[in-house]
């Protein structure tokens, strides 16, 4: 057993749980993005912990971390773009009011 790995992975699991709760429970688009950010942060933490404590010789793991960071930035940029468009057309970013998007 590697105690440091267990601590890091457990923190990642807790962040995933909190992020999932946030993404599902919030009605505001910006708050939902915050929940997704926490979930992705948990993924980052797991990747770094696996690299450090299982395979420090595999540099591709760090590459994976950089890609997830890029995904975080992209998710936020597109999310805010949608938020601006929604705010402009409806005056609100409340997702409870976005039922008309349902097919």
């Amino acid at each position: 057993m590697i105690p440091e790995l267990m601590i890091a992975l457990s923190v990642g699991a807790a962040l995933f749980g909190v992020g999932l709760y946030g993404a599902l429970s919030q009605t505001n688009l910006v708050m939902i993005i915050m929940g997704v950010e926490l979930i992705l942060a948990a993924a980052l933490l797991n990747l770094v912990a696996f690299w450090r404590y299982l395979h420090p010789d595999v540099t591709a793991a760090k590459m994976f971390v950089l890609i997830v960071m890029a995904v975080m930035a992209v998710e936020m940029a597109v999310g805010f773009g949608i938020a601006i468009a929604r705010f402009r057309s409806r005056g609100s970013v409340e997702m409870e009011e976005a039922r008309e998007l349902k097919g």
Binding site: V18, L20, L24, S25
Partner: peptide, 16 residues
Amino acid sequence: MTHQKRLSLWAGGIGL
């Protein structure tokens, strides 16, 4: 500014 709190708590808890 929350909805479906119980479902979210269950989902987060089960995931954790």
